[in-house]
Design a protein around this nucleic acid. Structure first.
Lengths: 166, 166
DNA sequence: CGTGAAACCGTCGCCCC
DNA sequence: GGGGCGACGGTTTCACG
């Protein structure tokens, strides 16, 4: 249900499951201060209403052999809606592209890519991305090192804002 | 090559837990073709050795009230290592900054930020980021819409590469 | 890596406010 | 409406072969 506001217990549940997605329900219930059955009911409701999209193990991509991470700024020839959608669809099919966001300003899209090595990425760049329909320009920036990569959302900011508005 | 210490069962475990981090151990064991106890031992080993950094619920930030997502390109005055580290440390303390990557090329850092609304972000931009020590320039791009945001790593690419090298 | 057993947990029905 | 209690079945997690 859109617009349904969450109470403080729901927000605590989301914050706890974001921090540790494998927490048992009894541990979660203890932390949010209710007993297990109603806690599980709340979690199911949050899942069904879309607040929780899923649960994922956070895998270390570098240790697994993905040593290259690249941001690519893409400009298109045509910005007609059908052409934007077509490009987005292509991005969804490329496994090396992990994120694709449409931006305002001079560039049309930003892509976050990973690859096992530079030559794999360059093959993708020259053979796939640059040859794709409607692509006018691509500027790539290699990630030299990662300084912060926090999954999820800052609940502290949300709580602060809610208490300020109250 | 990294990833070589992992056998096919370990890689299957990682792929399954990345797709569904709350999968029960018995279900996971069934999918990878071994019984539950050794499967759990493998998972613990993968956690301890850093291949699995953690488990997180994937929370819908927009539905929670974070309606603004921004990429910020930051140029610094000094690129001396101490100054780079100092800036990275500041990014880690800003809750609105979810990711901070050091790049090659004309810009020094790319930041991915979220905020409840534009005015919250603009306050952060003008009062925090632009006033921070050593910051020379900041160019921001608002995310108009997200087209793809896949957590994790493309295991398909890894498997293809391993079989090609074999 | 597999088997068995014990402790724990997820889940349901029912009762309460 | 949401929260608590109790019980059943499945799961986690040992020790051992």
């Amino acid at each position: 249900m859109p617009g349904h506001r969450l109470d403080p217990i729901d927000r605590k549940i989301l914050a706890e499951l974001q921090a540790d997605g494998r927490m048992t329900n009894v541990e979660l219930a203890k932390r949010v201060g209710i007993s297990a059955p109603p806690c599980l009911r709340r979690v199911r409701t949050l899942e069904d209403s879309g607040y929780i999209r899923g649960y994922h193990a956070d895998v270390d991509s570098r240790e697994l052999g993905f040593e290259v991470q690249v941001f690519a700024m893409v400009g298109l020839v045509s910005q007609a809606e059908a052409d934007l959608s077509a490009f987005e669809g292509r991005c969804r099919e490329w496994p090396l592209v992990r994120e694709c966001h449409m931006l305002n300003g001079e560039v049309d899209f930003i892509l976050k890519c990973v690859a096992p090595d530079l030559s794999t990425f360059q093959t993708f760049l020259t053979e796939e991305l640059l040859k794709a329909d409607n692509v006018a320009s691509v500027k790539t920036s290699l990630v030299i090192r990662g300084a912060k990569d926090t999954p999820g959302v800052p609940f502290e900011v949300l709580e602060e804002r809610l208490s300020r508005d109250a």
